[in-house]
């Protein structure tokens, strides 16, 4: 190994670690923004059309601050009352690979904001929009759908399950390399 490779490697690692911290430090406090329609199904007569995306999704998804905030809010807004720490209870499990209303950030955001007919309440006027995005990002991390470099690494409370950054990576799970 040539002598300058190690510093280079460390520098690149440091840069990657920075990415997980990049965020808008002056979040919107508004309720109910992000009004884009989000289809509940992938079955679309006449051929599938591209799903509308929200640029908020990408900026919240892999961000350590937003994920950890999402984890805190998950308790504060009583999400954990129904979904426990991801295993479910009154509401469905969120840490498994089954998604009733879609697994994208946009779908989860819509589920929290608008509710769903079989029992998911609408939090439209209860939770500021950016916090809904934080919750959506955290919900995805429960099933290994967040980079392990950014997902929360510990619980402040009773360890109900291994921390989110130790969940098997959903993107590669069950697939050959």
């Amino acid at each position: 190994m040539r002598p300058f490779v190690l510093p280079l490697l460390l520098a690149s690692l440091a840069l990657a670690a920075c990415q997980r911290e990049e965020r808008d430090t002056r979040p919107q406090s508004a309720f109910g923004s992000g009004e884009q329609p989000t289809p509940v199904t992938t079955l679309e007569p006449g051929g599938q059309r591209p799903s509308p995306t929200d640029n908020k999704a990408a900026s919240f998804e892999a961000n350590a601050f937003h994920l950890s905030e999402g984890k805190r809010l998950f308790g504060w807004f009583n999400c954990s009352g129904c979904h426990a720490n991801g295993g479910g209870g009154m509401g469905p499990a969120l840490m498994d690979e089954k998604w009733i209303y879609g697994s994208s950030m946009e779908s989860i955001h819509a589920t929290i904001r608008d509710g769903r007919p079989n029992g998911m309440p609408s939090f439209r006027d209860k939770i500021p929009d950016d916090q809904i995005w934080e919750l959506a990002a955290f919900v995805r991390s429960l099933s290994g759908n967040a980079p392990s470099s950014a997902a929360p690494s510990r619980n402040d409370d009773m360890m109900a399950h291994p921390s989110e950054n130790r969940m098997p990576d959903a993107a590669t799970l069950g697939k050959s390399p």
Partner: peptide
């Protein structure tokens, strides 16, 4: 309810 047994606190801890 098809709950996930990896979460010890699921269903108020019954799982």
């Amino acid at each position: 309810g098809d709950l996930d047994p990896r979460d010890a606190t699921a269903a108020l801890g019954f799982v």
